[in-house]
Design a protein around this nucleic acid. Structure first.
Lengths: 204, 204
DNA sequence: TACATACATTAAACATGTTTATCATATATA
DNA sequence: TATATATGATAAACATGTTTAATGTATGTA
C-alpha cells in the first residue's frame, strides 16, 4: 500500500512535469504523446495508463492553475462587492490568465466544453462548485432587495456562464482581440443583463 | 472548363452522399475516411483533396440542412412578432432540428465553435448573416420605443447567441435533457435578459 | 493531329493516439 | 522464506487522419 503507490505517484509527476513543459513550449496540438513520454523518461503507453487520453492529460496539466486563478480571484474580492462587480472581477482574472497562452486554453476548452461532464471532471467541477457560489451571491442580493425575487438563481448563474464563455470564445479564437476590448465587451454585456435583473428604483 | 469540372463535381457529390449516409448511420466519430471512401467508390486521399479534413467534410454534409432549418424558421415567423418571440421561435426550430441526431451536431459544434472563423466558413457565416438580422430587429424595436436606445444592437445579438449556445451545449451533451425542458430554460433565460432590455413603463 | 501542360485521382507511406499482450516485480500468503 | 498474485510499465501492434509522390487523362496549343 506504500512503496508501489509511491513509485506510481512519482511516475505520474514525471509525466505531468514533462507534459507541462512541452505543452507550454510547443502548444497542445504540436505535442505528441511520444514526445512527452521521451521527455518524462517513460513509454507512451504508460501515459495512457495514467491519464486515459491526451485531452485528459492536458486537463490534468492545466486545471490546477485554472483553479488557483479562480480561487485567487474569489479570494481578492473587494469586501461587499455587488454581484456585477464580482463577476467582472472574476472575468478579469480569467481573461488575463488565459492571455498567457491563448492557444493552449483554446484547445483545452474546445476539447472539453461539449463533452459529457464525466469525461472532463476538472472542468465540469465548475458546474458543481462555481454555480452554487454565484447562486448564493444572487440570493444574498435578493434578500438585500437589489435583485428581483422571481429571478431563478441557478438559471441566472448559467446565463452568466454562457455569456462569459461566449466572450472567452471570441477572445481565444481571435488573436487580434485585446484583453481590454474583451473586458469592455464583458462589462457591457453584464450591463445588458443587469439592467433587467436589478429592481428599478422608481417603481410606481 | 467543363468536362473535367463536371467529373469533379460528380465525385464531390458521391463523397457527400456517402458521408451523409454513414455519418447519420454510425455517428461522426465511428465513421472513418476510408469507410466513406469505400462507400463512395473513391480513395481516401480523394476525400481529403476535396474537403481538406474530416471536420470540413462533416461541416459540408450538415451545413446545408442547418441553413435550411434556420431560413425556414426565419420564413415562418409570425407577422410582427417581437424580438423575444422571434428568438424563441428560432431557438425552437433549431432545438427540434438538432434533436434528430444530437451526437452528430454535438461533434460538429464542438469541432468548429472554437476554431478561427476561416477554418469553418459555413458555421461562421452566422457571424456575418445571422447577427445583422437580429441587430436589425433590435434597431426596429428601438425605433418603436420598446428597447432602450443605449443598447448596442450588435453586442446584444452576440449576447443572445452566447445564451443560445450555452443552452444548446447543455442539450447536446446531456442525453436526459428533453426538448421541452431545454426550450423552457431558453425562454426563462430570454426573460431574464429582456426584462432589462425593455424600457420599464413606469419611469418617473 | 501530335504534343505539352494542368490537374483529378490514387497507392503507399507517414504521424500519432490508443490498445493489447507480455514482462517484471512489489505485495500478500503459506 | 518460498510461492502466488496483483499490478505498473512497456514494446509492439493497431487504427485512422493526412501527406506525398506517381499516374493517367482531359484540355489547350502547334
Amino acid at each position: 500500500m506504500t512503496r508501489r503507490d509511491d513509485i506510481k505517484a512519482e511516475t505520474r509527476e514525471l509525466i505531468l512535469q514533462a507534459a507541462h513543459s512541452l505543452f507550454w513550449e510547443k502548444g497542445a496540438e504540436k505535442c505528441t504523446i511520444r514526445g512527452i513520454a521521451q521527455e518524462a523518461g517513460v513509454s507512451a503507453a504508460t501515459i495512457i495508463v495514467h491519464f486515459k487520453n491526451k485531452t485528459a492529460l492536458l486537463e490534468a496539466v492545466l486545471s490546477e492553475d485554472i483553479e488557483e486563478t479562480l480561487s485567487g480571484a474569489l479570494g481578492t474580492l473587494p469586501r461587499d462587492a455587488g454581484l456585477q462587480a464580482t463577476l467582472l472581477h472574476i472575468a478579469t482574472a480569467m481573461v488575463n490568465f488565459y492571455d498567457h497562452n491563448r492557444e493552449l486554453y483554446r484547445v483545452l476548452i474546445r476539447d472539453t466544453l461539449f463533452e459529457p461532464s464525466h469525461e472532463s471532471p476538472s472542468i465540469s467541477k465548475m458546474d458543481s462548485e462555481y454555480f452554487p457560489i454565484v447562486a448564493a451571491i444572487i440570493d444574498r442580493e435578493k434578500a438585500a432587495g437589489k435583485i428581483r425575487k422571481e429571478v431563478d438563481s441557478l438559471l441566472a448563474s448559467q446565463a452568466f456562464f454562457s455569456l462569459y464563455i461566449g466572450q472567452i470564445r471570441e477572445f481565444l479564437r481571435t488573436p487580434e482581440m485585446s484583453v481590454s476590448t474583451t473586458l469592455n465587451h464583458m462589462s457591457n454585456i453584464l450591463d445588458l443583463l443587469f439592467n433587467g435583473m436589478y429592481i428599478q428604483e422608481d417603481n410606481s
